[in-house]
Each structure stands twice: as structure tokens, then as C-alpha cells.
């Protein structure tokens, strides 16, 4: 299965040092270049230039991940969208513009689009679904599910 048509960076593009740096930062993204350099027996300048190169290649990036709660988002909903009378791509692009939508994917399968939406409280669900989403041309049916508990959420591989 290789549905995505984008070019693939081969794993060999990254050498052992790149991977060593990535592994250390995965555990502690705030480790200083000096700390990483000492552990991997290279200079801080080398670490700095490797990190810059990884970022410029679009291969990896150190990120600060904040919890939904840090933004006051207490409600997460997973919404399936079926589209009629309009290109799915165009509908998905309009949905992606809504700030509450933090992920949107065009799917094969029963739904045309799946999105994850973060909201402040339950009272916003109505407004979001029935005003903002339903107002977008081409949105035909909505299948929302409310997250009662997020047990695991670990995405280390993302579109950069």
C-alpha cells in the first residue's frame, strides 16, 4: 500500500549522529546543544548545524507540545463528514480553516472527511457543528462522537 504520492526521504538520508540527536531530543526536547554534544562526543557547533540541517530538510523538528487543557480546551470531538455536490478537497480546505479543527483528513471508507475538533465546553458543540460546519457548502451529513477519555495520544510522525 502506498497511497500517498509524495516523495519519500530515504532513511539513509539520516546518519547515526542525526538519529542520536533525535533520540536524545525525543526524551528531552530542551536538552542544550552542549549536553547533547557531550553525550554523543561531538562539538556543540556540530549539534547545532545538524539540527539546522534536519529542520531545513523538513525531516524533523523539536516542538513544544501543549496539552488541550493548557488552551482551555476541555471537549474533544471526532466528526465524520459526508460531502455531496462539491469537491471533497474544497470542503476539507474550508473545514481546515476553522480554528477549532486541529486535524482534518480526507478518507476512503464510509466518511469522506474525518476531523478532530477541540472546544472549550459542551455549549460550543452546537454552535460549532450546526452553525460553522453545517454552513459550509457541500457538507451533507455529520457523524460526531464525543471523547469521554483520551487514553493514548502519541504522534511522533507528522506532516512537517
Amino acid at each position: 500500500m502506498q497511497i500517498r504520492s509524495g516523495r519519500t526521504l530515504s532513511a539513509t538520508t539520516l546518519d547515526a549522529l542525526d538519529n542520536g540527536i533525535i533520540e536524545m531530543l525525543r526524551v528531552n526536547g530542551r536538552a542544550t546543544n552542549q549536553e547533547i554534544a557531550e553525550r554523543l562526543s561531538v562539538t556543540a557547533a556540530t549539534v547545532s548545524s545538524r539540527l539546522r540541517r534536519l529542520e531545513e530538510m523538513g525531516a524533523s523538528r523539536v516542538v513544544a507540545v501543549t496539552d488541550f487543557a493548557a488552551h482551555g480546551y476541555n471537549v474533544l470531538i471526532a466528526v465524520g463528514v459526508k460531502v455531496a455536490g462539491r469537491e471533497v478537497q474544497d470542503v476539507a480546505r474550508d473545514l481546515a480553516r476553522l480554528p477549532e479543527v486541529f486535524s482534518a483528513n480526507i478518507m476512503n471508507g464510509a466518511q469522506d472527511i474525518e476531523m478532530l475538533v477541540a472546544l472549550h465546553d459542551f455549549s460550543e458543540i452546537n454552535l460549532f457543528l450546526l452553525d460553522h460546519v453545517a454552513g459550509i457548502a457541500g457538507v451533507d451529513t455529520l457523524s460526531p462522537g464525543i471523547a469521554a477519555d483520551i487514553v493514548k495520544f502519541e504522534f511522533n510522525v507528522v506532516p512537517l
Partner: peptide
């Protein structure tokens, strides 16, 4: 188990998640 596959990612916010 109902499975569906994403064929195109339109949006993904890297900086916000649930930290368990």
C-alpha cells in the same frame, strides 16, 4: 472494527495534543 484510511492530510496541528 470499521477501518478507513486517510488518503490526504489537510491539516494537523503539531503543537497541541493530550499529554498523558
Amino acid at each position: 472494527v470499521e477501518t478507513s484510511i486517510s488518503v490526504h492530510n489537510v491539516k494537523y496541528e503539531v503543537g497541541v495534543a493530550r499529554i498523558t
